[in-house]
Simulated assay, not measured.
Amino acid sequence: MQLISLCSGSLAALGAVLFAYGNGLSKWGGLAVLLLGTAVLLLSLSLQRRQEKEVTRLHRQIMDFLAGKNKTPKFSVNDDLFAVLENSVVELESRLLLERENTRKSSKRNADFITDVSHQLKTPLAALKLYCEMDQARNLGAHSQKQLALIERMEHLIYSLLRLEKLRADVYELQFAKHDLSRLLEQVWEELKVLYPEKKFTIIGTAELRCDAYWLHEAVKNVIKNACEHTTAAGHIQVLLETSETVVTLSIEDDGGGIAETELPKLFQRFYRTAQTKASGGAGIGLAITKTIVEKHHGTIAAENTAHGLRIVMCFPILDGVLAAG
């Protein structure tokens, strides 16, 4: 379209020169060329404006869909190329809505099942815990403390599993707002440094992100706590914040020696435990929760070994105004 505008403009300019300086037929020929070039130029500019208007409208339609404002996409009945493009977008939106609804129903069934099982387990666990506490109070069993710790671990596992499935089923409504990630990381470390007073914790860089502060706090805390548990007493955890035009990157790196390369793809799977996690008694739920939270922020998470330890990289797209719909 720009090439047509350029050519028609040049044609009109040539016609103007011939009309101004020509004589006889060349003068009138120049006038004809001038009028033709002007007409083509005006037509191309009109088409260009219409094209820009249609692209802007289509972009707004896509953004409204992402923000959850357009629940029922409508097909265009116009007979032009833009209608073909628009209908392709609407078809994609319709398929995404159907897939989202099917996923939501499937996740809800899983969450309901986990909830039912959890409730069935909570009552006998509560009774067992009460008996163990009574035995411990009366010093009737030397092994009661170990039994109590096991019951509490089972309670924590059930609670974590229930939260994970509710997250996946969109039971929790995330509240998005712009937050300072440096401040969020400092708050996380304030909670953890009491447990790991000798660890060194460093934040490099700054970044702001539109996110749910409560859930992102938990996601980051799971990773940093995991790093603390798999480094030496004086280990170092470093967080790097980077911002580009489209992505905020949050990298958490430790100096704990890393894990086997074969374990990296499985690290965020539910119930998966590395050799180090098994030794520390972890349940393999924390990083699965972190992955789900990151995905609810439309982000990605990956793990890689470095020369000194393990690095967890979270990438979040900058989508101001879109994430309100989750």
Rank of each mutant, 00 (worst) to 15 (best):
V55T: 11
A111F: 05
N139S: 07
R311D: 15
L47H: 12
K108E: 15
K122H: 03
A219T: 03
S88C: 02
A307M: 01
R138P: 04
K69C: 00
N139L: 11
L85G: 05
S76Q: 01
A177N: 15
F316R: 07
L18W: 10
L125H: 01
E152D: 10
S10M: 04
R153P: 04
R183M: 14
W189I: 14
C7F: 06
D170C: 00
S10T: 12
Y214I: 07
S88W: 06
F268E: 13
K291R: 12
L130C: 08
L6G: 12
V294A: 06
T246C: 04
L34E: 14
A275R: 08
M63P: 02
T56N: 12
E101G: 03
L181A: 08
R60S: 09
R163Y: 06
T38S: 14
L11M: 11
L43N: 13
Q187I: 13
L128C: 06
Y21P: 02
Q276Y: 01
S46Q: 14
Q61S: 08
E191V: 10
L58K: 02
G9P: 13
G326P: 09
L45G: 09
A213I: 07
A207P: 09
H298I: 03
S244N: 03
M154R: 12
K105A: 13
T231E: 13
I318S: 05
L92W: 08
I4Q: 10
L43F: 13
P265L: 11
I62V: 01
Q147I: 04
C228A: 10
Q51A: 07
S280A: 10
Q147R: 03
T262P: 00
P124E: 02
H217A: 08
I259C: 05
T300N: 06
E155S: 07
G9A: 04
C7T: 14
M134V: 05
L185Q: 13
L45V: 02
N70L: 05
E261A: 10
A279Q: 15
L323M: 06
A83E: 07
F316Y: 14
L3H: 13
K53V: 01
A16Q: 12
Q175K: 06
A303G: 10
L216H: 03
D80L: 00
P317W: 00
C132P: 04
